[in-house]
């Protein structure tokens, strides 16, 4: 059903290394920062997420930095299912989407029924986007059909909500596996494929993202369907974010340079982007003291 496509690991690394040497400065950098902010899924996925923390996160999503008026809002906030209602309440009049992780996040170690219930619950609370995890254990033991069926059933459970499929690439072992999982998720109906939960290291890395982008490209070339991409976890600096944007542009073209097809899953990245932004505008290197913690 899904072919195993061999990956030239050295070639991938060299391509990434070349792309990382691009120097993006001044106006282009400001444009890229603007885009990165508009593509951001501002995320908090901690057991300690309190009501106050979610409120703070949502307000930051709406008004990333009040001292500069022209700063755009982020694309979405990403929270646990039991925090969706609260986020929805705060963000209902805005353009910001609410993404929720579901399906026994982050391990995915539960029955299909519980995963489906998890998705139903998140959607009924008002989630616009569902971030599911695949069953890595099943994938690694070769039960590809089971993984495929799970994804397609969860896609059905999502209804109108967008489905992002988290491959948790740090647990998949090889680039070949990552390519195969990407193809599998795309064929099973994913709207987005996403690298990581953020709970496992290594999370998003450029070679992994390039392989996933190639899967998206090949799928587009053969079917004409545009699947989105979301690297998540470990992206902390604006410089990294801009490198990812270059990678996307070079692999998929400008169509994907849009929040509807590319997202960053991040929490601390937002502050770094804002600091770089203010630095570009004022010429002063910034201090974290002047930016909110969450």
């Amino acid at each position: 059903m899904i072919d195993r496509i061999p990956i030239d690991t050295v070639g991938i690394q060299e391509r990434v290394a070349r792309i990382c040497t691009r120097s993006i400065k001044r106006e282009s950098k400001l444009k890229a920062l603007d885009l990165a902010l508009r593509m951001m899924d501002l995320t908090t996925l901690e057991g300690s997420d309190s009501e106050g923390k979610i409120r703070q996160l949502c307000n930051k999503a709406l008004h990333p930095y009040t001292e500069l008026p022209n700063i755009p809002s982020v694309a979405a906030v990403c929270v646990y299912p039991n925090r969706v209602a609260l986020a929805n309440n705060i963000l209902k009049d805005s353009s910001i989407s609410i993404a929720s992780v579901a399906t026994a996040f982050p391990s995915g170690m539960s029955s299909l029924q519980i995963k489906l219930d998890d998705v139903h619950y998140a959607v009924s609370e008002g989630a616009d986007e569902i971030d599911m995890v695949i069953s890595r254990g099943a994938f690694l033991s070769g039960e590809y059909a089971r993984v495929y069926d799970e994804i397609s059933q969860i896609k059905e459970a999502c209804g109108n909500a967008h489905l992002k499929v988290i491959l948790e690439t740090g647990e998949l072992g090889s680039l070949e596996n990552i390519r195969m999982a990407s193809d599998l998720a795309i064929k099973a109906g994913a709207d987005f494929i996403k690298t990581s939960t953020g709970k496992i290291s290594p999370a998003a890395t450029m070679p992994v993202v390039l392989v996933m982008l190639q899967a998206i490209r090949d799928n587009y070339n053969s079917t004409g369907v545009k699947v989105g991409m979301k690297p998540a976890g470990g992206i902390r600096s604006s410089k990294q974010a801009i490198q990812y944007l270059v990678l996307v542009k070079e692999t998929l073209g400008t169509d994907w340079l849009h929040p509807s097809l590319f997202r960053f899953g991040a929490s601390s990245l937002a502050n770094d982007v804002l600091m770089q932004w203010v630095k570009e505008k004022t010429g002063r290197y910034q201090s974290l003291n002047y930016f909110s913690n969450d």
Binding site: R284, Y285, S287, N289, Y290
Partner: peptide
Amino acid sequence: PPISKHMD
């Protein structure tokens, strides 16, 4: 200039 302007 950069160190005197630096916010940190």
